[in-house]
Simulated assay, not measured.
Amino acid sequence: MGKGMKNWMIMLLFVALGKGYAQNKAVETSGDILMLAIPVSALATTLFYEEDNKGTWQFVKVYGTSFVVTQSLKRIIAKDRPEHNGTNAFPSGHSSNAFSGAAFIQRRYGWKVGLPAYALAAYTGWTRIDARKHDGWDVLGGAVIGIGSAYLFATPHEKKTQMDLTFSKTKEGCVVGFIYTF
């Protein structure tokens, strides 16, 4: 088994056993952070690593469409949240945010950086289910909206970029690295 496969297995094991490594609130907070970090990372790549504004405008369309569709459906459907007071559960906004960023990264820059982004987006959706704020349908709905928006508006970057996302295991846990080569 290659080193890359071992790193993926360690990351997936960490995600699957996340409850054993952190308290529920910490897991929920990590999902809150990733909900914003993934799309912010997608936008940042267009601002800092592209020579024109094409990617930035594509991201604005992807994220804007995802946001408007998600918020509209929340108010139209008004589905109750599991074990919480309030409505607007469907679709999950955390999931649509995370998946719109992940799908944009994958569409624009390829599967090498897109697959880890999707894994982080899936973890974000899982945190919403774990926190009992959404069920699987809410998360799936958000994912479909986020991915669908990216597939409508994002196109592959014309210039091959030298980006890499790495995962490593240390004695203390896991390390995620992002490398950009000029």
Rank of each mutant, 00 (worst) to 15 (best):
M1H: 11
K3G: 03
K3W: 08
M5G: 13
M5L: 12
N7M: 07
W8M: 12
W8S: 11
M11T: 15
L12G: 02
F14K: 15
F14G: 12
A16D: 10
L17V: 14
L17M: 12
L17P: 12
Y21S: 13
A22P: 02
Q23A: 05
Q23F: 04
A26G: 09
E28Y: 15
S30F: 14
M35E: 07
L36I: 10
A37S: 12
A37H: 10
I38M: 04
V40W: 01
S41G: 15
S41Y: 03
A42H: 08
L43E: 00
L43I: 11
A44L: 08
T45L: 06
L47T: 11
Y49P: 00
Y49G: 02
E50A: 03
E50T: 12
D52R: 09
D52V: 02
N53L: 05
W57Q: 03
F59C: 11
G64I: 14
S66A: 12
S66H: 15
V69E: 02
V69T: 13
V69N: 05
Q71R: 13
I77F: 05
A78M: 07
A78I: 03
D80V: 02
D80N: 06
D80P: 08
D80H: 14
R81N: 09
H84D: 02
N85W: 15
G86K: 09
T87H: 11
T87C: 00
A89L: 05
P91Q: 07
S95N: 09
A103Q: 07
I105F: 09
Q106F: 12
Q106H: 15
R108P: 13
G110Q: 05
G110E: 00
V113C: 01
A117C: 07
L120A: 12
T127V: 05
I129C: 09
D130V: 04
R132V: 06
R132C: 01
R132D: 01
D135V: 11
G136D: 01
D138I: 13
V139W: 01
L140A: 06
A143K: 00
I145C: 04
G146T: 06
I147L: 00
A150S: 10
A150N: 06
F153K: 05
A154C: 09
P156W: 08
M163F: 13
L165K: 00
S168Y: 12
S168Q: 14
K171F: 15
G173L: 08
F178I: 11
T181Y: 15
